[in-house]
Design a protein around this nucleic acid. Sequence first.
DNA 1: CTGTTAGCGCGTTCAA
DNA 2: TTGAACGCGCTAACAG
Lengths: 330, 330
Amino acid sequence: MKRRPTVIDVAKQAHVGASTVSRFLRGVKVRPQAAVRIAKAVESLGYHPDETARALRGGRSRTIGVLLPKVSNVFFSQSVQMMEEEARKSGCAVILLTHQDRMAQQTEHLTTLRRYRVDGVIITATPGTTSADIRAVLPEVPVVAFDNLFSPDFDSVVLRNRDAGRIATEHLIRHGYKSIACVTGKPEIYSFQERAAGYQEAMLKKGLKPNMITAANYEQLRFALAATIRSKTRPTAMLSLSDFATLTILSTFNELGLKSPSTLPLVGFDDFGFAPLVDPPLTVVRQPIESMVRYAMDTLFRRIDGESFEAAQTIMLAGELICRRSCGCL
Amino acid sequence: MKRRPTVIDVAKQAHVGASTVSRFLRGVKVRPQAAVRIAKAVESLGYHPDETARALRGGRSRTIGVLLPKVSNVFFSQSVQMMEEEARKSGCAVILLTHQDRMAQQTEHLTTLRRYRVDGVIITATPGTTSADIRAVLPEVPVVAFDNLFSPDFDSVVLRNRDAGRIATEHLIRHGYKSIACVTGKPEIYSFQERAAGYQEAMLKKGLKPNMITAANYEQLRFALAATIRSKTRPTAMLSLSDFATLTILSTFNELGLKSPSTLPLVGFDDFGFAPLVDPPLTVVRQPIESMVRYAMDTLFRRIDGESFEAAQTIMLAGELICRRSCGCL
DNA sequence: CTGTTAGCGCGTTCAA
DNA sequence: TTGAACGCGCTAACAG
């Protein structure tokens, strides 16, 4: 049960002062002979600097907070994977927190992030969040909004959701469908609202009547869908705003014993490995996750490193329509 | 740009000593009047304790490290989601790291975890890892192996992989198939090896000849599969050891213009939302992720809290075969 | 270029 | 019960 070695131990063994060790470790120039002895001592003692002490002393924890609704879906799990990699390149560790779209949990997590003194935060905020909510707890910490846009006070990186919604809708219209429904759960979520707005724009521009099918949760959405499918005014095509909505649509169809390809064309959001293998192969809007994450992390680290003093900026990236069979193509 | 308030600030405003504030914050009894004044001061100053200072002082960072191969698949993303929730219940934050099955990255991450002084570690180690590799860097930190079993020195939580492999294979045999291939990428991974062992047991017990189709990466696996499918000794059914292998099988079939249901029955591992909607609906072994995570985290926290001094134990949980159509059922 | 010193904010002595 | 004082390990400031 021996103590972990400290700079002092290394200093003694290398016959130098503690600050010389500190300098050496951080890449500042020291006398070559000393450098060798320090390196040797570090090795033989198995010394590793203590980040908690560094953080206390320096005010920087080399830690960034990632606060998302959840990670158990394609979009967020790929995002967090990349965030971790990008953070590592900048010498930071990721503290991962999920709020499940519950405001109370998000608030709690924000104070957690404050307590841990994270150097920066990436957040996909729950609907209704204001910049004041965040600044009350994290007054001076760089924050980048990811996949949502809840305040002009923060740098934000989002999909061109409205365009994506419009493009997907226009694609269906071009296939000749006129009665197109737009379905989503959690309609209060920013990106879904934008996608829906794009859908409505596209519909109205062609003189078609928008038809939103939404529900607070997915059980209710299932009901709403079943009702719609059975009704006589049943839509001839659907735009689904999330992978989960797509899943709900398809399984509802399945339960009713209907195959969607022949019965009802569909375009969804978010691509994933099995999308081409679903029956029918899914036409989707793919989000450029890699770019989104990279922009978000770059922006964050430029703020952290104090290289950027401009006003907050919003970066919007285009989605890509990937045509497979579910929309009626092929 | 005012300083963050500290215990001292709170102490002054409440007309008490700093240690009284500290006691109050940690739930130790203090004079009732003082308690009220402290609470008021905390509120009005917007005070939040600094975890980095706590960690330095107390030697506990209230942080646990989660080191996984990746998070961008169903199994790990659901796991990490639950780990985060469980950690929160115990007042800890999760530092998430991924090693992509690269030993060098894993080693680097282990030292990262040491530097951050994490209180405990959950690890899905890359193949070839030894307990010495870990203890060299983290001599005194509780470590729980998750989804792999690389050393009896650590508490471990894993699926009954061998049983699961056997059961899945027996299921196919019961359907009357005799020439069953077992396909996986990354055959060096612990859980795949176990599942393969179960497959071989089941085959040999029935006097059938095992037929492993493996490859180091998925591009090669695709080739191997294509070759197998075209050959005259083509297997009549397949057992896939991971969702990624399943994906590879199905898309290879697709490229060759074959539909698997009629052509080749299949059982896979890991259930996911779209599994019933794939063509054909996938029969899979579902891992009890919730239980696995809960056991892992419970074990870890019992070690951290010093409630457990027994030798390391291995917890193995049964998988559940979920029959859909791809195996030939229905 | 170097070593000594003084905190960073907290929890834990210890004596009152 | 309380408050004063020390030190966790590190780095920035300072004087050599």
